[in-house]
Amino acid sequence: MSEYLQLFLVFAKIGVMTFGGGYAMLPILQREVCETKKWAGDSEIMDYYAIGQCTPGIIAVNVATFIGKKQKGIPGGIVATLGMVFPSLLIITVIAAVLHNFMDIVWIGHAFAGIRVCVCVFILNAVLKLWKSAVVDVWTFIVFALVFVGSVILDLSPVLYVIVAGIAGIALSLLGVRKEKPGKGAAKDGSVAAEKEGSPAAAEKKNGGDGK
């Protein structure tokens, strides 16, 4: 079987088996990529994973690109990523098409009104869990507060906040006002992005894994 096809199929399998992405994906990734296929070592996977969080975009996609690129160069990176998103495309399109025809039914409307309340709580949970590793001193609190208040009351693109916050982070680090030791944040990244996925299960794993 061609290695491209294998890349596609393995990552499609990981895509199907991952609910919510993030840290929940890591054990499946280790089993499929390290143990079964031997495409990367355990520490290599952890590195890719950590960097996948320190780069823009979806973590699962970033890791898939890394491994694909390692195996078969740039085309391999693209094929692995396409494999990763393929199940989502298929499943979500079917569900969206079905729901599209049912949304006008009264009780379905009531059901989704209830579900929206639940989604609010999921987002709140994601924020609370992220908070611990992101807001570590007074400066990070100021960044959080400015961005939060700014985007609640102003109608500006989030892109602007991201660019300004990145520059501010570099400036604060270089000025040496940062209370937290540089590098500590990077070590914690594993938890940060996992929690962004908002999965309670993922957060649980992280708490155990950190040895707290």
Partner: peptide, 21 residues
């Protein structure tokens, strides 16, 4: 620089998600 950028990006991301919430 990458480490510094993420020092600022992480709390900003929490703020953005919070506001979306």
């Amino acid at each position: 620089y990458v480490d510094g950028a993420f020092y600022g990006l992480r709390p900003a991301s929490v703020g953005l998600i919070g506001a979306a919430g």
